[in-house]
Design a protein around this nucleic acid. Structure first.
Lengths: 173, 173
DNA sequence: GTCTATACAAAGATAGAC
DNA sequence: GTCTATCTTTGTATAGAC
């Protein structure tokens, strides 16, 4: 699915992979703020100081998880067919792994910590479906707005109705 | 501009207002994570524990600031004319006070801590300009997606081009 | 690479005196 | 309502044994 050279775990040791897996589990159960280095070490079965032999700090763990999120998202959005299907796939990703989605999309992005080309590859489906860079960015931003507001429970009704997603799709169809 | 009964500072004591003002200043200079109860107290000229005589905890300070942000946003979006002007006003708010915008729009919303009706009043311009609840929600979500990605520097080019905002406006015109 | 032990600096929060 | 003193959690880090 994802090109080998874009895999954020490409050169990770088995132990590093294990740590990332554990971090993802904790993240999806508790949210990033509640992932502590101590709990992460517990989950792996080692002591907290040992984590620093594999990752410089907590942010380095986060960077890999962000890469994983972008890679999985880019894969799930392919192959590209039409706007409605793309939006449906995008929504599904955010709802399936809300904390991972949040981690990868909220706040600044440390681009230097990502495999070169991954960010672009992850967003390319929006260009493919619109055929125009500005329309692609606008559609991506709209999809993100819908997704993040939905998983954060910000829509007054509690969850975003299917009709609102359909309305958005109709505008860009 | 804003109805009196929606004012989040309506029943605040002078000291509480002073604390909120100081918190806003710190927020806009440093971001919410760097607003500490100690720094906030310093700014006001008292000791950190004294803050807890005026606010239950840091989240209670945040709740008032979120209310202030919603109130100012709702005021700045009025009067409503057309989609393009509404989006321009929305974008201007986010760019003028990015950390306040983030505080009010990122993550879950503690609705119980807000004046009743404020959230709805703040978002009503989107209903006014579209005349349809689903289109209003979709437009609001799209505007938020654009705004938050722009102030977080998430657009690959660095900042969202005016053309992308124009593209979005054209879809909902 | 892992462990134990230890340390330190934020940061939110509380208890109790005045 | 303000103070001083104190507690806890957490990220981060080091030293040194195995």
């Amino acid at each position: 699915m994802i090109p080998d050279e874009l895999d954020p775990l490409r050169s990770a040791t088995p132990r590093a992979r294990q740590i990332v897996d554990a971090a993802r589990g904790l993240l999806e159960r508790e949210g990033w703020d509640r992932v502590t280095m101590r709990d992460l070490a517990d989950e792996v079965g080692i002591r907290a100081p040992s984590l620093y032999k594999h990752f410089a700090n907590k942010d380095a763990v986060k960077a890999v998880l962000v890469g994983v999120a972008l890679a999985e998202s880019g894969a799930a959005l392919r192959p590209v067919t039409d706007v409605a299907s793309l939006l449906a796939a995008y929504r599904a990703i955010a709802r399936a792994h809300p904390d991972l989605y949040r981690l990868a999309t909220v706040g600044p992005l440390d681009r230097d910590a990502l495999p070169a080309g991954l960010e672009e590859w992850s967003g390319a489906p929006f260009f493919e479906v619109t055929g125009d860079p500005h329309a692609a960015q606008a559609l991506w931003a709209a999809a993100h707005g819908m997704a993040i507001l939905e998983i954060d429970g910000r829509f007054p009704t509690g969850t975003a109705p299917d009709e609102t997603w359909a309305e958005l799709a109709s505008k860009f169809a």
